[in-house]
């Protein structure tokens, strides 16, 4: 990532224009031309800096739900369990963390019932208890990272 890439990442986190040539408009604000912005975005996606360029969906606005879940996975089973968990398309992300409960993942599904069913499937497939920790209250959601 060079200075221009960092400027792009910082400049486009807030949103993207809804006009016929949005890259041209966004590029102007960044002091670039349309082709260069498109080329650089493609490279940022290719190299994995961006997981995607496009929409950030909120399944809750469509009646869907997110559930955070945790498991205590034995070290020697970790790779196998990771595969089983990540095979579910509803698993939006999955982190290993330093704790007895060492696997933390989020399930996104159209309904709370479906999300709970996924957790039950994971428990059955892995033979490991899955602790479900749905959010009860949200105090803030934001992204203020400066690259």
């Amino acid at each position: 990532m060079d200075a221009t890439d960092r400027r792009i990442v910082a400049g486009l986190q807030g949103g993207f224009p809804l006009c016929p040539r949005p890259y041209a408009e966004a590029a102007r604000a960044l002091g670039l031309d349309e082709d260069e912005l498109i080329r650089r975005l493609a490279r940022l996606v290719e190299t994995g800096v961006l997981s995607r360029f496009g929409p950030l969906f909120n399944v809750e606005a469509m009646g869907g739900t997110y559930i955070l879940a945790a498991m205590a996975v034995p070290e020697d089973a970790f790779d196998r369990v990771t595969e089983l968990v990540n095979a579910h398309v509803e698993v939006a992300h999955n982190y290993e963390r330093e704790h007895l409960l060492n696997m933390w993942f989020v399930v996104a599904a159209e309904t709370p019932e479906r999300a709970e069913a996924v957790l039950a499937e994971i428990a059955a497939e892995t033979g490991i208890e899955v602790l479900s920790m749905p959010k009860l209250e949200e105090y803030f959601v934001g992204l203020r990272l400066q690259p």
Partner: peptide
């Protein structure tokens, strides 16, 4: 209290808009 750092990330793709579609 406790602080749990992440040591590895296996998946980060955000929510699909319709999970059962895939």
């Amino acid at each position: 209290h406790a602080v749990l750092f992440s040591t590895r990330r296996f998946k980060q793709r955000g929510a699909r808009y319709r999970a059962e579609a895939a």
